[in-house]
């Protein structure tokens, strides 16, 4: 991943606090809405899922696909964003 999106950099730059799930890179309006419907309304809930899957990329990608129908790029963006955040703040 040579260049990251602005959203990614914004998210990784600071503790996520109470950010909505939309703040995650790769999660836009549509996917955010779907995730909220499933109860993943905050970014830290998704982080919880990410952590409970032990930061496993394959499982997280599958989960994200099954939960909100994210495509490969969105999965990758979201995973990278959370992974980097964890590397920085965990």
């Amino acid at each position: 991943m040579s260049s990251t999106s602005q959203k990614h950099r914004d998210f990784v730059a600071e503790p996520m606090g109470e950010k909505p799930v939309n703040a995650l890179a790769g999660i836009g309006e549509v996917l955010g809405k779907r995730l909220e419907e499933k109860g993943f309304d905050k970014a830290y809930v998704v982080l919880g899922q990410f952590l409970v899957l032990k930061k496993d990329e394959e499982l997280f990608r599958d989960w994200l696909k099954d939960t909100c129908g994210a495509n490969a790029k969105q999965q990758g963006d979201c995973f990278g964003c959370l992974k980097e955040w964890c590397d920085a703040f965990l």
């Binding site: 899922q49 409970v52 499982l59």
Partner: peptide, 15 residues
């Protein structure tokens, strides 16, 4: 496998 809870179980089954 990590913790198999409700939210992860489906994924592990699938795997």
């Amino acid at each position: 496998a990590g913790p198999i809870v409700a939210s992860t179980r489906a994924l592990y089954e699938q795997k």
